[in-house]
């Protein structure tokens, strides 16, 4: 989690994935949304910012070939996975338009195959990446056994959950929720997860500590988006 400045507004640090690292630096890539990211975008070289981390779990290691599905800025937490397992992934990468297909060149060098889509058709196929993936599955049914690694907006994950269940695929997804503490203390960042031992069939898990990566099949989405 990152925060620029030490003023009280915005109050909380914002969660970000690590894009990459080397001996000296951690690399982040973020999209300007509201106060937190606007302030972070204004920092200059030499400014001091606050970092709390690394937090939470990581991707389970892929065995052999695997599938990666990224929506827009959701590519960020997947880049290290692609880098650590070069030429093993089939990447499906979708965004609103060409400009939002970040790290496209870098990512395409790390993968075995790549499929691109944009909502407006400015690059790749026009349409949603989950639909492109669905079409791909129809003609490549052998790929149904490959593990999927996925990150994208909540609506995308929600749509994708349905597909995963229908085809009985195995998929890990990096999930987003608002965070306060980042260490599992406030219970503010929960998602609903299937729990068969429970009388109502679910319990809440924290995205910051138990996640952010969950087995997508286990997540219950009942929020309105």
């Amino acid at each position: 989690m990152l925060q620029a400045g030490d003023n009280l507004d915005p109050l909380l640090k914002r969660p970000f994935s690590i894009l990459d690292y080397d001996d000296e630096l951690l690399y982040f890539l973020f999209k300007k949304k509201g106060k937190g990211t606007i302030y972070l975008s204004r920092i200059n070289k030499g400014d001091v910012i606050t970092l709390l981390g690394p937090l939470g779990n990581g991707w389970p290691a892929p065995q052999g070939e695997f599938i990666v599905i990224a929506g827009g800025i959701g590519i960020v937490p997947l880049m290290l996975l692609l880098k650590q397992h070069r030429n093993k992934a089939i990447l499906f990468y979708g965004a609103k338009n060409e400009n939002e297909l970040l790290m496209l060149e870098e990512a395409s060098k790390l993968v075995k195959e790549i499929y691109i889509s944009t909502d407006d058709g400015s690059k790749g196929t026009r349409g949603l990446i989950t639909e492109i993936f669905n079409d791909f599955l129809v003609s490549n049914s052998s790929c149904k056994d490959l593990t999927i690694y996925c990150c994208g907006s909540p609506p995308m994950l929600k749509a994708f959950s349905k597909l995963i269940r229908e085809h009985n695929l195995s998929c890990y997804a990096s999930v987003e929720e608002y965070m306060a503490c980042g260490v599992g203390a406030c219970l503010g960042c929960v998602v609903k997860v299937i729990n068969e031992a429970d009388s109502e069939g679910f319990h809440y898990k924290t995205v910051c500590k138990d996640g952010p990566i969950f087995n997508l099949k286990e997540i219950i989405w009942d929020q309105v988006f």
Binding site: L12, E177, A180, C186, L187, V190, Y204, Q223
Partner: peptide, 17 residues
């Protein structure tokens, strides 16, 4: 179990949970 999410929202210099 607690409440469904979203459970927290930041407001100026404050947090509603």
């Amino acid at each position: 179990k607690g409440n469904p999410p979203p459970r927290i929202v930041e407001t100026p210099a404050g947090l509603i949970n």
